[in-house]
């Protein structure tokens, strides 16, 4: 939870709380410190609802995406951190970055991908399976070396959907 000396209106504290809620699938966090209070709720569709009050609490207002906070006095808000998407290996096997040893890699850092873009091959038990991005964006990281063994569900690439 929030550290003793941090204030509930602190944006970084709220971000940490939001992260905790997602990680532990909490539907609500209600914190009070003196006359200050912060209540975070996730709506039925997963939308995050945020309310802060001192001391009377208005009804929570749905916030469609990341948390925004209205606090008196208003402060300059940090831009929400971009959430990176991941491309994972559907099977254990061997990672191949290119269609053959002499060819260019399917993608590099900075490559734009669409859902049907082939990003690598995973070989397992002699089956060479072309893996598609299944998302749109720009490759941010390539996390596996060519011909490296990979596990089921291992993250191979991160993708910036807003890149």
């Amino acid at each position: 939870m929030a550290e003793k000396n941090s204030r509930p209106f602190d944006v970084s504290t709220i971000k940490a709380l939001v992260s905790l809620m997602h990680r532990h699938e909490l539907t609500e966090i209600d914190l009070r410190e003196g006359e200050m209070r912060i209540r975070l709720r996730r709506g039925p569709t997963g939308a995050l609802q945020v309310a802060t009050a001192a001391p009377a609490l208005p009804a929570p207002v749905p916030v469609p995406e990341s948390a925004t906070v209205s606090t008196p006095p208003p402060k300059t808000e940090e831009a929400p951190k971009k959430e990176l998407l991941t491309i994972k290996s559907p099977t254990p096997g061997t990672f191949y970055a290119s269609p053959n040893p002499d060819a260019e890699p399917f993608v590099r850092v900075g490559s734009r991908v669409e859902p049907n873009t082939v990003v690598c091959i995973i070989e397992a038990m002699k089956i060479f399976n072309e893996i598609t991005a299944d998302c749109s964006g720009v490759i941010k990281e390539v996390l596996v070396e060519n011909q490296q063994p990979v596990e089921f569900g291992q993250v191979l690439f991160t993708v910036d959907p807003n890149g």
Partner: peptide
């Protein structure tokens, strides 16, 4: 499903 494809050879 795709995660079963490697078992096809066996």
């Amino acid at each position: 499903a795709e995660n079963r494809w490697p078992l096809l050879s066996l």
